[in-house]
Structures are given as C-alpha cells and as structure tokens.
Nucleic acid binder design. Structure first.
Lengths: 136, 136
DNA sequence: GATATATTAAACCACATGGTTACAGATCGA
DNA sequence: TCGATCTGTAACCATGTGGTTTAATATATC
C-alpha cells in the first residue's frame, strides 16, 4: 500500500526495494537517459520499465524532462539523503558488532553453567570480556 | 514480490518501507522487547503486528529469542550498514545541490533564448555561473 | 487441574504490485 | 506526407501485501 499519498520515506524505501529500480538509479547517476535507454538493459517489456520509472518519480528520485518525443530522466538524489539520515540513527548498533559479541556470549552461557556446576568448584576460564561501548 | 528468496537488499528496503516496521526498529533500538510490547502501540491487531516482525526477521533486521511463552525480539542492525553503503554511492549527487542549480539553469533557458534573439544583438546578462564540483 | 497469557496458524478479503499484450498518439526524418 | 520511433494508456492476469477474525497451541499462574 505504498501509493502516491503515502509518506515520502515509505515511497523512497519502497522504490529502492526493487533491483530494476536500483539499476535505473545507478545508471542515471552517470547522467541523463531517456526511457528507451533505461529500459533496454532490463529483462522486461518497455511498459514494465516505464512503470518502474514512474515509481521512482513518485518517490522524487527521478525527474523527467520531455524533449520532443524523448523523455529524458535524471537522478534526483535528495531523498536518498533522508534514507541515510534515518539509517544513521542506528550506526552505533552495527559498528561495534554488539550482535556478534552478544551471540558469542550467548553461546558461552551453557559452558559457563557447566563451569559453575558444584562439581567443578574452581572454574579456570576467565570471565567473559567486558563490552565497552563508545561513549561519544 | 519480496519473498524470503529475494536478495537481502531487496528484503531490507522492503522491510523499511512500512511505518509500523520502522517504528518497531526504532523501539528495539532501545532494547529487547517481546511481541506484545512491540504490538501494543501499533494501531492494528496482534497478528498483523506479528507478521510485521516476521518481515523484519526475513530481512535479518530482527532476531527472536524464545523464552517461555514470550518471544523476545532484538534489533540486528547489520543490514542497515548495507543500506547506507548503497545510498552513500550517491552522496555527491545530493550534497552539492546539483538538482537545485540545474533546475535554476533550466528556468533561465527561455530567457537566454530571448536574449540570443537576432533582434537583441548584444545580450547584457552574464553567462550562467559555472558549477564547480567538489573534487575531493 | 483450571485459567489466563503469549503467540501461531488458518482462512479470508481488498487492494497493490509487477508483469504482459495490444493499441493510440506524438514527433522526427526522409 | 509517410513511415519509423518513442512513449503512454488500457485491459488483463497472477501473485504479494496488509489487514481482519477465529481457532489452536504452549506456557505461566492460581
């Protein structure tokens, strides 16, 4: 349900969710191209490709300039800025590999349990490394 | 057509294209939450919210840990890294506001045409400003 | 054991998406 | 003017999406 009335961010993310549309964006980054040029490398009919361009226009990622019978398209990268801004919120969550460390600690738990077993009074293994989070 | 067999980037972008799912991600950034907690603020039925979480899991953005009858979910931000990496390709295209300048030049064209009209032999207006791209 | 709670599963619905083919228009070149 | 070219529109189809309600399952709690 990502229509033209949906919030822009919804439309942008949705527009980027199709490989054909990402391919179009990549090629437009090199400069203006008309619809035929954009459609030709895609493994689909022209109308299908044309629809993809319309989706990109709806997300304000592409702008069309009609010159005679040709529709010249060019990249409008502005909305991508908001995409990065949104994802940047979570940079801290992937940078320090919390997930990997957490998973490691999770896997170590059973062993730790075994080590704290009353029958093994003095566990030899050192405690799990402290995870220090960047404070900046 | 963003099934579990689609490329990961497709799934990630698709997962982010729904406000409810972005809301879930934002709240999981603050820490683990179970499904009920995630679903309660959403204006939809519990099963609907549960489906959204599954979409996020399909995009490897959320991981589930079953603890008794509660399904604890936590954020797995790794795929967001690839999102920024993809969009960063185009940073140059939005940073220098090429679009705005291009649009401005586009609007000036008709006037230029009038000025180069034979009946106006000496156009007084200076040529359009050069656009200098950051070389770094 | 009975009951409440957390979650899934299944069936269903309206509508969006992504694709096709066929045809209509506008425009460029000869 | 004629034909080729570029694009749009319309009709259609299969499938996906996002939501619902109802029922089933597993786990705490009393």
């Amino acid at each position: 349900m990502v229509t033209d009335r949906a919030p822009l961010l919804d439309r942008v993310f949705h527009a980027l969710a199709h490989p054909a549309r990402r391919s179009i964006i990549r090629r437009l980054a090199a400069g203006e191209q008309n619809l035929s040029e954009l459609a030709s490398p895609l493994k689909m009919s022209f109308p299908a490709a044309s629809k993809h361009v319309r989706v990109l226009e709806g997300a304000r990622l592409v702008r069309r300039r009609i010159s005679g019978r040709q529709h010249m398209c060019r990249l409008e990268a502005e909305p991508l800025k908001e995409v990065t801004q949104w994802t940047e919120q979570f940079r801290a969550h992937w940078e320090a590999r919390f997930q990997a460390l957490d998973a490691l600690l999770e896997e170590m738990k059973p062993q730790d349990a075994a080590l704290t077993n009353p029958s093994a009074p003095t566990p030899r293994r050192r405690s799990a490394p402290r995870i220090r989070r960047k404070t900046s």
